[in-house]
């Protein structure tokens, strides 16, 4: 692991019974960069995301994480309280379905403020102000702060999830098909929001997507997976414009041009 990598995985292996989900997978992530993991269903990309984020334990290999003080941690050897605390502070996870990561019976402000309260924030006024500031950042009207997410559209829910995740200024965000469930017209706005937030806040991200256009738009580097293996990796535009591996060429040529 080089001096400044944020996350580094070596030799990851995982089988679900006879099915190889990950086979000898390496991955690295530097601060402030976006890494896209693309592949078709069954490629292992979501499994990789779950292993990198500590949610799923690999059978082989190791995932190293460098904390803000520069210390290295083996993600899967961390005690559970530490890993859970990490997920609430320096890490974030944006799910494809925002309802999985939101409390639908709690106001937008409460949802955004929860991580702050979990870290000990005890001033109602300041928590609410911070929540409002973040709602503005994700282009949700500030006067929705006391509204329940039940009344939000799909795109708004996803943006609320993002606000809820970013409120503790994570350096690393894992995203699983963040625009997957959204209407196409809504996707564009959300993608642009993610793009500008990531750039402005210097967030590093691992982004799983089956949509090459999303990868091209958001990611600096890309990893192409097929049946649990990394078949090609490199600069996003280079891999997508000059694919070397047969499978990558197939993927790229299969994309319909609107």
């Amino acid at each position: 692991m080089s001096e400044d990598t944020l996350l580094s995985a070596r030799g990851l292996g995982l089988r679900f019974g006879a099915v190889p989900a990950l086979v000898d997978v390496d991955a690295e992530l530097w601060p402030g960069e976006v890494l896209a993991v693309v592949g078709e269903s069954g490629s292992g990309k979501t499994t990789l995301l779950n292993v990198l984020s500590g949610r799923l334990r690999p059978q082989a290999g190791v995932v190293w994480y460098r904390d803000p003080e520069g210390r290295l941690h083996d993600v899967h050897a961390m005690p559970l309280p530490a890993l859970r605390a990490l997920h609430r502070s320096d890490w974030g996870f944006v799910h494809q379905n925002p309802r999985e990561n939101l409390r639908m019976g709690v106001s937008a402000g409460g949802n955004v403020g929860e991580r702050l309260m979990a870290q000990g924030a005890r001033h109602y006024g300041r928590i609410r102000e911070e929540a409002i500031a973040w709602l503005r950042q994700v282009e949700i009207d500030a006067d929705r702060v006391d509204d329940l997410p039940r009344s939000f559209s799909g795109g708004m829910l996803q943006r609320l999830q993002i606000a809820r995740t970013l409120v503790t200024h994570p350096r690393l965000v894992f995203m699983d098909e963040p625009t997957g469930g959204l209407d196409v017209s809504v996707q564009a706005r959300l993608l642009d929001l993610v793009r500008s937030l990531v750039a402005r806040l210097g967030i590093a991200a691992v982004l799983v997507t089956h949509d090459l256009a999303v990868a091209r738009l958001l990611a600096h580097r890309i990893v192409v997976m097929q049946r649990g293996r990394v078949v090609e990796a490199g600069l996003t535009d280079q891999v997508l414009d000059d694919p070397q591996h047969e499978y990558t060429q197939l993927l790229v040529s299969s994309v319909l041009q609107a």
Binding site: L80, P81, V106, G110, G113, E114, A118, Q119, Y124
Partner: peptide
């Protein structure tokens, strides 16, 4: 309780104050 993760209760109080 084991992990001392009580944010949820604080959220409940937050919601009460909001409402």
């Amino acid at each position: 309780h084991a992990l001392s993760e009580y944010g949820l209760m604080q959220v409940k109080l937050y919601e009460d104050i909001t409402r």
